[in-house]
Design a binder for these strands. Structure first.
Lengths: 315, 315
DNA sequence: CCACTTGCATAACGTCAGGTTATGCAAGAG
DNA sequence: CTCTTGCATAACCTGACGTTATGCAAGTGG
């Protein structure tokens, strides 16, 4: 059955006889600061610990522990290795807990937050994949402005959020991991006079001949949009519909010759479907960072971790 | 020797026979999608894999793998558990690599960046501990302004930095983890007329009777200081020494009746030593977040990880 | 300075965890 | 209906990993 000629891609050619027992033993020694102490903690005899440590040092090719009359203390190499050993034992611990813990799939919902633009772009794709892989998952999505997301996060009402970096003061205890940068898009319905295809660029000033739909005041894409409009000489947005509701903005754009200035992701789906056409306007490539916000202290649940993975993959 | 009555704090009372082999076997099955395939990859016989998986499912109390004619596929529980199993095997892999890898302590320096205020406050304490634990460590510290730190980080000249969140555009691929928030301190030498001890608060306007020393223009503490000064009616800083050099600022303060407005951390050491006295001025508690900046993609070296740990502990 | 304690190393040895081969069984595919 | 594919079960064998017994080195108190 096994052909010895097959060069199977082994995880590591030099797994060289390291076993979990070596690591747990090593950790115990490091914490008890005595071989005998480690032995009793592990419910082993002292010689067993001695031998195991010796084996570990054999494959390491150097001393990891200084033994003396006063017990055992880690060498420099040893304490460097301790970090890895701890990581393994900790991971092992959490794995065995996850295994024996009652599987309560969906007894508690995953509460996650997202910006409206994310909730209409990146997140649905991730959730579709999630429900394909995990039919019983129960997810609650809070779609809100960034300050509300941060507030909900710090208050513990959601586990994590896809959002932006907030004011410094609000970011206490919250870590941010960048996913992508969001840039502006200018779209209209395909029948729109300015929707001339990618060949003929539209002068930015031409936009002002049509009603504009812009994001709600105070939001990040709105600030971008304002900066853009100011750069083409339209200081005060007149003939404007401003709303935080993507649904409203989209409907207005579909039903009229309005020009919608919004986040690229928010309109992506409709652009792909041909329901909306991107106008070839030279928008500034100012990129607003969007990422995962989470509390630094509390670890994410399994399901949350999985969703974040999916979002990363989709980004 | 062992007293069976001693209730030694075991790592987990329900480690219940899970071994590393169960996890590696499970991972192999998940990836090969066939028990026999996993067996050949692990250089084992198919019955061995079958038995091991059966054991794992026994302690789990539920099926983790659906076996059928078409091979093996993970159940929902199984793929949930796969994450943990992978974490363990990955940690194990990196541990054994760290063990067998030649210890080259100090052949390459750790390059780390820090704001001047951090370089004078938090970082030295962490480095002292580092060198106590690891005498051969070779550390290069770049003390610079936050934009320079971010630039050095993205350019790969440093591994990580203790700094602030930068402009969104500059934070591409950089993650931020908050350590603490930095607030303003107003200090002077102990003989200073305003250094009256904690009992008699100093009116903020009294500061204006003395020469001021403020941080360099454009820096975060300077913006805080400006806001504070404006709030007490001193709009344009006159009679001011402004410098980015903490050394200069400190020396001027020690040698004269100047009042130094700076980050609390920057003056902490001298305050503790009695060389500088904090003035009991009602400064706004505007808190600037300071944290660890690192590239999202590239993992930190062991030494860097250790330094970050120490900094976290010191914060 | 000697007896005693503390702590690790070594030796000799037993057993069970974890592998092996052989074989059975179920379910498509041709 | 037979052949193939893939997993499960049985019986058995071996060395990894534990044990107890003992030695040795280094402080430490009387």
């Amino acid at each position: 059955m096994q052909e010895p000629s097959a060069p199977v891609p082994l995880p590591s050619t030099a797994l060289s006889r390291i076993r979990l027992r070596h690591l747990t033993c090593f950790v115990a020694i490091a914490e008890e600061r005595t071989l005998a102490g480690a032995a009793t903690r592990l419910r082993l005899s002292q010689p067993a610990v001695s031998k195991t440590l010796a084996e570990l040092e054999l494959v390491a090719g150097r001393r990891l522990v200084d033994r003396g009359r006063a017990g055992a203390s880690l060498t420099e190499d040893g304490s460097r290795f301790l970090r890895h050993a701890l990581e393994v034992t900790r991971a092992m611990e959490s794995a065995s807990q996850a295994l024996t813990r009652e599987s309560a799939p969906g007894i508690a919902p995953l509460r996650i937050g997202a910006l409206p633009t994310v909730a209409g772009g990146l997140l649905p794709r991730a959730l579709v994949r999630l429900h394909r892989a995990r039919p019983h998952a129960w997810v609650q999505v809070l779609s809100a402005s960034n300050p509300e997301l941060v507030a909900a996060l710090t208050a513990g009402r959601i586990e994590c959020a896809i959002g932006r970096m907030a004011e410094p003061g609000a970011m206490r205890g919250i870590s941010f991991e960048l996913l992508y940068t969001e840039s502006l898009a200018v779209v209209a319905r395909p029948q729109h006079p300015l929707a001339t295809g990618p060949d003929r660029p539209v002068p930015a000033s031409a936009l002002l001949d049509y009603p504009l739909v812009v994001p709600g005041p105070g939001t990040a894409p709105r600030l971008q949009a304002d900066a853009f409009l100011q750069s083409v000489g339209a200081d005060a947005p007149t003939r404007c519909t401003e709303t935080a509701s993507l649904t409203l903005a989209r409907a207005v754009t579909l039903l009229s010759d309005a020009v919608w200035i919004t986040s690229r992701h928010a309109s992506q789906l409709d652009v792909d479907r041909g329901l909306l056409a991107p106008l070839d306007v030279a928008v500034p490539q100012s990129a607003e960072p969007v990422g995962v916000l989470r509390r630094t202290r509390t670890p994410l649940s399994d399901l949350a971790e999985e969703v974040v993975d999916l979002i990363r993959a989709a980004a």
